[in-house]
Simulated assay, not measured.
Amino acid sequence: MTPHAADLQDRFALAQKMATEAGAVALAHFNARERLVIETKADPHDVVSIADREVEDLIRTRIAAAFPGDAILGEEYGVSSGTSEYTWVIDPIDGTSPFVNGMPTWCISIAALRGEEIAIGVIYVPCNDELYAAADGMGAALNGKTLKLDGSRTIRNAVTGIGANNHVTPATVASIVEKLLDAGGNFIRNGSGALMLAYVAAGRLVGYYEPYMHAWDCMAGYCLVKEAGGWHHPFPVKGDGLTKGSPVLAAATGAVNDLRAIAGL
């Protein structure tokens, strides 16, 4: 094994270990959520709790101990610079609104970029004990079982995930839904973009589209979809692009053209 491959393997192993450890911490808070102090961010539906911050602290601490030269971008604490070619991109709890409202559709999302390429994607769903894991050239798996997408699935014989937030107008969301339904498709929204991207990689959804999403919400899912044989719209990572929002679209091959037309991408 080359040093380059060994570096990736070591970080991939750490990502999976961190995800399950962080998931246990988050699940303990979830099961005692009546004691959580909830704060709002940009709007009443954009919330954060001590659980989010504690989980991100844990992940940052583990990364700093194992790979002190790596940069880290996290939803709660922003960017810390590094000296290596790796940048970790983490969402401590994606789906905080479902989390604080007692729904199981939330997850821990951990990704790592090597240069400008997504090299690692790990998503852990504590309520279901599901670990989605992928690394560049190593494929994607769910709890150790290889994930491979079915190219015969389309928007008309499968379900598409749709995301929305305060960055997107209600009219825009309504237009997306209308176009998808007019094309013969159907949709769900479960409150976690990262989890719905994992569902695309697992073949549970045929695609996922959100007009505006941050890197910490989508990087791990993008890696999973790519390694499972799907396609994703590029996310801008050069310069300060990684810290800004972008349209996010990922799909199995049979749904790509339809969803790109619906999204205008």
Rank of each mutant, 00 (worst) to 15 (best):
G193F: 00
I155S: 02
G161H: 11
R156K: 15
E34D: 15
G184R: 12
M1T: 12
S80K: 12
H167M: 11
A141F: 12
R204N: 07
R11D: 03
A174E: 15
D46P: 06
A24G: 13
D52F: 01
D10E: 08
D57N: 15
N31Q: 15
G264E: 04
D217C: 07
M138F: 05
D46F: 05
A13P: 02
A24P: 00
A111E: 07
D94E: 02
F235K: 13
H45I: 11
N165Y: 06
G82D: 07
V168I: 15
G137T: 03
N157M: 05
C107P: 03
L142D: 05
I110L: 08
D94W: 03
D240A: 14
A134S: 12
V89M: 06
D217N: 13
S109A: 15
N165A: 04
E75I: 02
W216Q: 10
V177I: 15
D46C: 10
V89G: 05
L224R: 08
A66C: 01
D52Y: 00
V256M: 10
Y208P: 03
R189S: 15
I155N: 03
H233R: 14
S97E: 12
Y124P: 06
G254I: 07
F30R: 12
T146C: 02
V47D: 06
L36T: 10
I108D: 11
I59D: 02
E210G: 13
G74N: 04
I90E: 12
G193H: 01
R11M: 01
D136F: 11
D150N: 14
I162M: 15
D7K: 04
A198D: 07
M219T: 07
I93P: 04
D70F: 10
H214P: 00
I93W: 07
P92D: 04
H167Q: 13
I155C: 01
I59P: 00
T172P: 05
V173L: 15
K238P: 00
